[in-house]
Amino acid sequence: MEKVKVGIAGLGRLGKVHANNIAYKIPNAELTAACSIMPAELEYAQKELGVKDVYTDFDEMLAKADIDAVAIVTTSGLHCSQIAKALDAGKHVFSEKPLGVNVEACKQAEVAVERHPELSFFLGFMRRFDPSYAYAMEKFKAGLIGEPYMVKATGIDPEALVQGAIRFAPTSGGIFIDMAIHDIDLMRWFLGEDPVEVYASGATFKHPEFKAAGDDETGVAMY
């Protein structure tokens, strides 16, 4: 089978994970190009992953790189526009969550996906494929716990990684859209329904940078 040539955009904390998976762990995939605005990340791609074709501009990578598909692991606010550009350039697309940081942008991405039924698009809600969550879903479907009516989810990011979260807080979409989006997706999956009302509250105790970015470091929500 001919290998799928992939270009990746974004080589930060999670981008490196995706890049390594594409380069070394996914059969019939080949990491042939990388794009980042950070010189150190492009150096990483060249030295650690053997990528020769590197770019600082996403549009240039789409136009010049020998790629069949694009993995988008950039900051959340760029996802929708880059999804549309990649699809319009004839590339299959994998994008990290969230789809976007506002409804208008998400609708634009949706239109772009519908515009290209010949191409594959996938959004990174990987927990539906995690064996532990898939096992829980099997139990739900089998009726072994009765009819589920409530899902409780708790998540925490380690303090050791907080500086990265602070750096991207102004553009990430915040604690709910960027982080709790996985839990929201699982609730929709397990219960087979969408929320009709949402109540949320947040607070910042240690890192005022989150508050300055219009976000909070701790949040709780009821759907």
Rank of each mutant, 00 (worst) to 15 (best):
E114R: 06
L186R: 03
G202D: 08
V162S: 06
A165Y: 05
M179K: 00
T171F: 13
A200R: 08
A142L: 13
E197W: 14
Y149L: 10
M137F: 01
K141S: 10
R188N: 02
F129C: 09
D178S: 04
G164L: 09
R115C: 03
E147Q: 10
A180L: 07
R188Q: 04
R128S: 07
K141V: 05
G164C: 10
P195A: 07
R188C: 05
H182V: 03
F140D: 12
A165S: 11
V196L: 12
V151D: 06
G124P: 09
G124R: 02
T204P: 04
V198K: 12
F125V: 13
I177W: 03
F129E: 08
E138P: 13
A203M: 13
E193V: 15
V113H: 12
E147W: 12
V196K: 13
V162E: 01
L123W: 09
G155W: 08
A180H: 04
R167T: 01
E118T: 11
M137W: 01
F121S: 04
M137L: 03
G192V: 08
A200H: 07
P131V: 07
H207P: 00
G192M: 00
I175T: 07
A142K: 15
A180G: 01
F168A: 13
A160Q: 05
E193I: 14
D157W: 15
A200E: 03
L144R: 11
L123C: 13
T154Y: 06
Y149S: 07
R127H: 07
T154R: 06
S201Y: 12
M126I: 10
R115F: 04
G192H: 03
S172C: 04
A136W: 02
F176A: 03
V162Q: 02
F122Y: 11
P158V: 08
R127Y: 02
V151Y: 00
F205C: 11
V162I: 10
E159G: 12
Y199G: 15
L161Y: 13
G174V: 11
M137E: 01
K206A: 15
S172W: 01
S132V: 07
F205G: 10
Y149R: 06
G143Y: 03
M179G: 05
E138K: 02
L186P: 00
S132M: 05
G164V: 02
I145P: 01
V196W: 14
D194N: 12
I145Y: 12
K139H: 14
E197D: 15
S132D: 06
D157I: 15
M137G: 03
A136D: 00
F121P: 04
V198I: 12
M187D: 05
D157N: 15
G143D: 02
M126G: 03
F205S: 11
A160Y: 04
P158R: 09
L186W: 04
G202R: 07
H182Y: 06
Y149Q: 07
R127K: 10
E118M: 09
Y133F: 05
A165K: 05
L123I: 13
P170N: 09
E159P: 03
F129D: 08
F190S: 00
I181K: 05
F176W: 05
F190P: 02
I175Q: 01
R115A: 04
F168T: 12
D185V: 09
E197G: 14
P170D: 12
A169M: 00
L191Q: 05
F129K: 02
G124D: 09
F190Y: 00
F121V: 05
H207M: 04
Q163A: 04
A180N: 00
M179C: 08
